[in-house]
Design a protein around this nucleic acid. Structure first.
Lengths: 344, 344
DNA sequence: AAACTATGGACAATCGTTTGTTCATAGGTA
DNA sequence: TACCTATGAACAAACGATTGTCCATAGTTT
């Protein structure tokens, strides 16, 4: 037996229950329960059930001027950081009856995307992740005229951000290398000028300072966060006497390790490597990569929560910093060899 | 100077241009251009521009009973296969003015998700990816009563599928190993009973047959497609005289290589490994993994295209099979060593 | 000059909800 | 008995577009 093909509307339910649509609406929304006689409520509920009634979201949206949809803009989808954030955001959104509209356009087109989503009232608010602080983005968001939350980024003028405490994460990672006995520690960082890159560098220096190890600029290389950049950057590091590397991301660490292996280095004996962020693929590398976990899924969740609270008329705190997670000690970090450091 | 805070509606534009809203609508939708005087059109366009008018998507959706939104349901987000498919789908959808609503719930909840999205008219159609053929899914989709396309899966009763030709991909990968001189080739496959697993096995056998190599069941191990399963499965393979492995997925190949290395094997000299699918991380492994590329992004694009054509009233072909892409020869595949195969 | 026909736009209904307001009735109070 | 007050539910007006229909006007035909 087939359910009726046409979707039932409030009108249908009202007709069957012999009441007005407004009454049906009130009963089904579950609000102002007092004003409805129990017997009437029963009748309505029964009719709705029998007709398999489901509210029409579009109509509700139009009437309420709210879409109950959040947009999330990410530069790339295959990056575990973003996919975790999306997962977190979607979970929280779903809990509050919101859906997630996704857009992965890169920054060039992000402007268009943001404009489209917001100006056409497709979303109530936006979650925006980006790879590097982009000022165009900012003005577009300002003009878009919808509430938005920045992910792992702080921009002057942006109302809300949720960021990972990358300074503390970098400090923690470096501190661990120090605790293993390393004193010449390279840092494979991100673009100079980027907010997070500076934060990580600060954390790196803090750990060095705490251990009384002098800071040596020659041990710091900057690049973007790609595999290729990791490979390239490590070529500078091998000319120093570094015995360990603290890399900003998994992929740059992977690049570094690949390059070192190609150059004939024994890992981890001749070079320890630790990276920030964690994902399944850390353990697929060789040697399995030690990391400091970062709560990226949590970041997505918190950002969505912030946005939804804001939309509900709340007044959430403008910026939330999430502390790093635990140290994942795998096989890529060992104590430095007692002898002289390898030199090329 | 700030744009007016309130978004302009058709009514505002109509008032400024001193015409009826219906006229404005017709002009702005660009249709039936003949019936409007050029001078009037000018006036309307100008007013719309001046007011920075943007159509309200929700209102349009309600009136037209179409959301111009596609839902995509994936079991996981961090899997490169799915993120590529999403990327492809989103790109194509955007080209046609559609947005993508994402949902990553795993199968248990997929039912709920599907129901929610479709019954509440949030989407016009669904793109559904799953890890294993799931019958619950099917009935839920049938009841959902919206057009849908299955990704890389065929289910009896499902109206549309777009699949990757994994049989041909497996054949191609195996053929390559044969061409290198391997004759004892292991296969690390997926769950027996799964549609794709059977296809891959068939491709594997086809390549063997073509080369006149007898099929040996001992060389075939099945499991799910995870890293752990790859590790476990390879322990059986090392007891055979296999000199090469054709793995169903990147991660299972990664698992196999990790396990082999731990057992002290020299890669790729003592064991060649090739996998189906390709992603950045294939080259981050050690040794960099040879693969047969699979057009997963294309799959997403084709699926979205199919769905949109269907929604437009077209009559697209029910199933599309996409041929595998090219062979990515990296460092994990070499000719077998001339001597006797290693045995444990 | 009368009648017809395009042409250009206005009118109005509609999509399915939500929600402020009104209204009838019943019970309670003075 | 007359009046007031809750109570429960109907009425009706939105939300902002799309689209079928109708009606002037001007131009064309006979």
């Amino acid at each position: 037996m087939r359910k009726q093909r046409q979707k039932a509307t409030l009108v249908d339910v009202a007709a069957m229950a012999e009441v007005d649509v407004s009454t049906v609406s009130r009963v089904l929304r579950g609000q102002s329960e007092q004003r409805i006689r129990a017997e009437t409520r029963e009748r309505i509920l029964e009719a709705a059930e029998k007709l398999n009634y489901r509210p029409n979201f579009t109509a509700r949206s139009l009437r309420m001027s709210r879409t109950f949809t959040l947009g999330i803009v990410v530069p790339q989808l295959d990056n575990p950081v973003f996919s975790a954030a999306i997962r977190g955001a979607e979970n929280l959104a779903a809990q509050h009856g919101y859906s997630l509209l996704i857009s992965h356009r890169d920054l060039g087109e992000a402007a268009t995307t943001i404009a489209k989503l917001s100006q056409m009232n497709r979303v109530d608010g936006l979650l925006v992740a980006s790879l590097d602080a982009d000022e165009v983005l900012h003005s577009d968001l300002a003009e878009a005229n919808v509430p938005y939350v920045l992910l792992n980024r702080q921009l002057s003028g942006a109302p809300f951000s949720v960021v990972l405490d990358s300074r503390e994460a970098a400090r923690k990672a470096t501190e661990y290398l120090v605790s293993l006995g390393h004193r010449r520690i390279g840092h494979l960082g991100g673009r100079l000028g980027g907010f997070n890159a500076a934060e990580r560098l600060a954390g790196y220096r803090a750990a060095l300072d705490a251990a009384g190890i002098p800071f040596d600029p020659a041990l710091v290389t900057m690049g973007d966060y790609t595999f290729g950049a990791g490979r390239k950057a490590v070529r500078e590091l091998v000319r120093t006497d570094a015995t360990a590397i603290m890399a900003a991301t998994l992929v740059s660490a992977a690049g570094a390790m690949a390059e070192l292996r190609l150059a004939g280095w024994q890992l981890p004996e001749e070079m320890s490597v630790i990276a920030l962020h964690d994902a399944d693929f850390a353990e697929m590398l060789f040697p399995a990569l030690s990391t400091v976990m970062m709560p990226t899924e949590e970041m997505g969740r918190v950002a969505a929560d912030l946005l939804i609270r804001k939309l509900a008329g709340g007044n959430p705190e403008p910026v939330r910093a999430l502390p790093p997670g635990s140290l994942m000690i795998r096989d890529s970090t060992v104590a430095p060899r007692p002898g002289a450091p390898r030199s090329k």
